[in-house]
Simulated scan of single mutants.
Amino acid sequence: MITGAALVRVPSSRLADGIVTHIARTPVDVELARRQHDDYRAALDGAGWSVVDVAPADDCPDSVFVEDTLVVCDDLAVLTRPGAKERRPEIAGARAAAEALLLDVVEIRAPGTLDGGDVLQVGDRVYVGVGGRTNKEGFEQLQRHLATRGRTASPVALHGVLHLKSAVTALPDGTLVALPNLVDIQALPQLLPVEEEGGCHLVPLGDERVLIAASAPRTADLIHQLGFAPVVVDISEYEKLEGCVTCLSVLVPPIS
């Protein structure tokens, strides 16, 4: 039974005004988004995570994408410095949440920029997307912070995608699942390619459970065939804003 915390943040009433970078803007149903967020929370709770609310940031349309504000590694919380300036007010709530969990808090400082969605942790290896919202200085600062917890961080160049974890994530056994045309595959181990965009956005929830979007049914079937247990959630309104299942939470595993 998982006893770690899952940090989430309620969607802003201004969610429909969220930033879109690589896709065309389409209307967002904010009420549906709220119901989907409730279902997302329920999926985390059902997998044994203690759902913890980060203080709302209603003036920040993208604040529901809480992953971008905080990188957690063991007992270390790295407060980010988002590449989009309008998202930086979101950090205060992330700091308060990390401090309430008694994590060791450090931060990315100017001129560095870092979005948590660019940080993929796979065991002792950490892959960091660079060239979009995260810059070289932000990567180097994160690299130094993570080294204090025995992690080795490597940069990965992005190609026309918002964040690294918009293109590649990992199964519980460490296998990387990706849309390979969106990242520099030379910087990554062997990949398991998928065809559905939502299929490369996975959140290991503990044991064999894997959170995946309802928009990727073929990938969910593949994951099941590989021996894992897909936990499917509909996040259609967040996908309209380049969001995915990884963006909507920060998992803080129990510290042994």
Rank of each mutant, 00 (worst) to 15 (best):
D173G: 08
G138C: 07
V177A: 00
S154F: 14
T134G: 03
P172K: 05
S166L: 10
L162P: 06
V128C: 05
F139N: 06
G138P: 07
G116Q: 04
H163P: 06
K136N: 06
D118I: 03
A110Y: 06
V177S: 00
L158K: 08
G129Y: 07
G131N: 10
P172L: 08
L114Y: 13
L146M: 01
Q141S: 08
A170S: 15
G131H: 09
V161T: 15
N135F: 04
V105M: 15
T169K: 05
G123A: 13
R125K: 14
V177T: 01
T169H: 08
L164P: 10
V128E: 01
V105K: 14
G117F: 13
D104Q: 03
V161Q: 14
F139E: 08
A147H: 02
G131C: 11
V105I: 14
Y127T: 05
H145V: 04
T113N: 13
D115V: 04
V106H: 09
D118W: 05
G150K: 06
V126S: 00
V126Q: 00
G116L: 02
E137I: 08
F139D: 10
N135A: 12
A157T: 12
L158S: 12
L158R: 05
S166K: 12
G174Y: 04
V156D: 03
V128Q: 03
G138R: 12
R149F: 12
L142I: 09
G116P: 04
R133G: 12
E107M: 02
H159D: 15
L164T: 14
L158A: 09
T148K: 05
V128S: 03
L142V: 07
G174N: 05
G174S: 12
A110W: 07
L162I: 10
A110R: 13
D115Q: 07
G132D: 15
L176V: 09
L162M: 13
T152H: 08
A167T: 12
D173A: 09
G160Y: 02
R133V: 00
Q121L: 09
G123T: 11
E137D: 14
L103E: 10
K165W: 10
V106Y: 10
H159V: 13
P155V: 03
K136V: 15
A153N: 04
E140G: 01
R109I: 03
V105D: 15
A167N: 14
I108R: 01
R149D: 13
V126F: 00
Q121H: 06
L102N: 13
P111E: 05
V168T: 05
V126K: 00
H159R: 15
L146F: 03
G174D: 08
L120Q: 02
Q141E: 13
V122M: 01
D124M: 09
S166M: 11
G112H: 11
D173H: 06
P172S: 08
G138E: 13
Q121M: 14
G132N: 14
E107D: 09
L102A: 12
G123M: 11
Y127L: 05
D104E: 15
L164Y: 13
D118T: 04
L171H: 00
L164N: 12
L142C: 02
R144Y: 02
A157D: 15
A153E: 07
V161E: 13
V122S: 02
A147Y: 08
T169P: 08
G174A: 10
G131R: 05
D104F: 03
Q143L: 00
L120F: 05
A110P: 10
V130M: 07
P172W: 01
R109F: 02
P111M: 03
P111H: 04
L102V: 00
L120I: 04
T134V: 07
G150Q: 11
L176D: 06
T134D: 09
